[in-house]
Structures are given as structure tokens and as C-alpha cells.
Amino acid sequence: MRRTFLIAAAGVCLIAGILAGMGLTYRRSLQVISRSILSPEYEHHYLFLSTDRSEMTRDIFEAAQKEAEETGAILEWGGRDALADYSLSELIEIGIASGVDGIILCPDGEEGISQALRDSKEAGIPVVTFLRDVPDSDRVSFVGISYHQLGEMCGEDAARGFHEGVNNVCLLDDALIDGAAINLIRSQMIRTVSHMSQGRSMKLTTVGVDSSALFELEELIRSLLFGEKAPDVLICLTPVQTECALQALIDYNMVARVQLIGYYAGASVLSALRRDLIPAVVTVDTQALGRSCVRALTEYLSYGHVSDYFNIPLENVRRENLYLYQNRKIWSRRISEENA
């Protein structure tokens, strides 16, 4: 009788175990099905708008997204997929209609953006611009870099690679950077080079390009490289320009002849630095930039006002400090992940 009881107890335990397992499987299935509804809830809904899909912008978005999560908000990148063809002003209007709590905007020079920013202000939705500003608009704050510092760093990096005599330096202008900013960069470059290079002179030319038009940019860079006066130093002011120029130097085997001063230390640029294909890159701290955008929005929503301008410092990355830079980036990413 005792053996019977033991076998029966074991059988009941087995059945109970299977039932529990099935219950767990069923519950897990429900959780998977309902994962959207069961996902964490946030207090604010911010919209991130940028037509630029470069690695730098993605890094900025990721940083801003993490900061938003930490401050109880969700950051949505608008204008993707089905809305990819929409202009920034249309996307702002959509954001207003959707009832978002704030917009982080990287203007692309669209003319109607000021009106959209006005509408946004009327709807009580603050807009923070980053990297490029919309002067005299209703945005609440701008998070960007100092063009003065950018010119200084570009001049410094260019001067380090100068040879004796006259050095042709080509600065790739960008349609998105206004003329005043370009002038500031140029003047600061000239000042820096004049301080640094003794017995070496620089002939600085500025070539206007549209980074959003990829095929044209590639053709332009090729024509520059194979022109009558190929540049000794080529300075890029956008990540897209940097990628294209780097690829062209490799493709046309002109790495040793042309010194490329890149902009933003993305993965491919860092790899090029490691392989000594380019001497230096001027980069912006995307973590700080992204986080500053969200902080500006949060501050505005909390206090009703925020500083008009947040400056994000630039940094030179060369082969000498590449290892330190990478380690610092890894650590700062890890720390921010741990904080999250």
C-alpha cells in the first residue's frame, strides 16, 4: 500500500509539474503576445527629427534616447519608413497633430521650418535644435558646436601635416552650414595655421558641396583629387563628406598624397586612423550632444525656460590619442548603460 501511495504521489507530482510547465508556457506566450501593451510606460513623448541618417546622427539619437528614458520620456525618431519622404516642417506638423511633448530637430535648411516652429510654439510644444540652428525662430534652445573651435582644430590638424612651401588646403563647405559659420571657420583656421607653421604657407580654398546629394559629392571629390591643383590637405565638415573622401583616397590610391582631416570619429574613420590612412579627425561628443538636447527639453518643460544655447566641445582624435579616445568612449558608454 505504501509503494502504491509513493507511485501515486510521484505521478501526481509529475502531472502537477507538467501542468505548471504548461501554465508557464501559456503565460509566457501571453506575455509575448501582449509585450507591446505590457511595455514600460513613460511620462513624456519627444520627437526626434533629422533627415541626416549618418552614424553621427544615429549616435546622437541613441544618446538622446537613453537620456530620455532616464528622465521618464520616450524619444521617437520621426520621418522614417512610410514618412521618409516627408519634409521636416511636415513632420513637425505631424508631431503637433500627434500631441508630442517636445521636438528635437536637426534643421536641414528647409524654408518652411520657421512656420512649423511657430505652429509648434502655438501648440505649446517646445523645439530644441541641434548641430544646425534656425536663427530667429521659435525654437527654445540650440545645442551645437562652436565653429570658432572647429576652425581652430581644423587649422591645427592641417598645420601638423604641412610640408615645406605652399600647401593647398581645401575646405569642403556644406550647404547646411551658413556662410557666417564658414567664414568663422576659415578665419580661425588661417589664424591657427599662421601661429603654428613657420616657413610653411597655406593656400585655403573653399568648395561648396551638398552633402545630401551623394553622387554629386563623390564626383566633386574625384574632380578635386584629379584636378590641376590637387589639395595637400582636404578638410571635411560633415561625416558624409569624410566617408566619401576617405573612400575616394583609398580607391584612387591617394592616401599618402592627400592629408584628410575628417569630421566625426565614426567606426570607419577610427579604423582609417588606426591604419594611418588619415592623420586626424575633429569629432563631437555625440553622447553629450544627445543628452543635452533632452536635458534642454526637460528643463523647459519643468521650468518654462531654458538656456538659448548649449555648446558641445569638439575634440581632436589622432593616432597618438586614438587608444585613449576609444577607451574613454567605451567607458562613458558603459557608465551611461549602467546608469540606465
Partner: peptide, 18 residues
Amino acid sequence: DRILASETMMLEKNIRGM
């Protein structure tokens, strides 16, 4: 109509608001 960390849910919220 809540702010949830789900793309689908956020799309629903946007569609509802719009």
C-alpha cells in the same frame, strides 16, 4: 493613448492623436 516603449503602441497613439 499612453506613452509606451513600443513602436506599435506609439504609432497607435500618434494615429489616435492625429
